[in-house]
């Protein structure tokens, strides 16, 4: 900074003698300029400065910077994917599926294929407005408490459950044909949930998926048409349509669905 407040002006300001226009100029400059800031002061401020000096400094506490990602971290950390109970349940379900698959391999019915895409669906169903979202009542009164929070939590659920299911699949030696359906079903759950509420939506999607997978599997084929390689032409448009529905219906996430408690 090349310009600095003239010494005389600074003295007048320090002693409270500066006019409003001069003071304005000085104050606008001081915020930007360390050198001039440190030059303010004098007999008229000494008393206040020494009276206000904190005698004892309390412990500081763990204050964090409000970085770009801090909000996202807090929003996801409050969701189910960051909870031990939810993680344990997901791992147990995956382990069971793998165990069933390795035990009854010959039957041609892939439990992992049935279960893996439903994990994120279950996570989404419990992510928002459910019993697991304890401060939901307060959250519902905040501007970012609707779809934005839900999407962060959905992302967290996917980030946890998809790799877990992939690992289980690699370990059990089964192909990850369920990857696309996992995304598609999650999107459909959100879309249907915008109308019916997430709980019922998740149940409907789960039953539908079970029927689609288990139905054709009764025969010889290990997977139904929805898992065939060319099913991409079904899943991608379905996912996009579901995403569009969510966006169009976003105001529906702005209020609590159930009028739950009363008094």
């Amino acid at each position: 900074m090349s310009w600095h407040v003239p010494e005389a002006t600074l003295r007048a300001y320090s002693d409270g003698r500066a006019g409003d226009a001069d003071a304005w100029s000085v104050e606008a400059h001081l915020v930007e300029c360390e050198r001039c800031r440190h030059a303010v002061g004098g007999p008229s401020t000494d008393a206040i400065v020494s009276a206000a000096r904190p005698a004892a400094l309390p412990p500081q506490g763990r204050v964090r910077r409000a970085g770009r990602w801090r909000g996202a971290v807090l929003l996801t950390a409050s969701g189910p994917a960051a909870r031990t109970a939810w993680l344990v349940a997901a791992v147990v379900v995956l382990a069971l599926a793998v165990a069933m698959d390795t035990t009854w391999e010959s039957r041609g019915f892939a439990w992992l294929t049935l279960v893996a895409p439903l994990l994120p669906v279950a996570g989404v169903a419990t992510a928002y407005g459910s019993g697991l979202d304890e401060p939901g009542e307060i959250v519902a009164s905040t501007p970012a408490g609707g779809l934005r929070l839900l999407l962060w939590r959905t992302l967290a659920v996917l980030a946890v459950s998809v790799p877990a299911a992939l690992l289980a699949g690699v370990w059990a030696g089964s192909p990850a044909v369920w990857l696309l359906p996992a995304l598609g079903l999650t999107a459909v759950t959100l879309a249907v949930g915008s109308v019916t509420g997430l709980g019922p939506a998740a149940v409907a999607v789960g039953l539908g998926w079970a029927a689609a997978v288990a139905g054709p599997s009764v025969g010889e084929h290990a997977s139904g048409p929805l898992l065939a390689p060319d099913a991409v032409t079904v899943w991608i448009p379905l996912t996009l349509a579901a995403a569009a529905t969510v966006v169009l219906n976003q105001h529906r996430f702005a209020h609590l669905r159930r009028p739950s408690r009363e008094a």
Partner: peptide, 10 residues
């Protein structure tokens, strides 16, 4: 920084 802040607050 106490002095300039004191002047500005005062």
């Amino acid at each position: 920084n106490a002095a300039w802040l004191a002047v500005r607050i005062r």
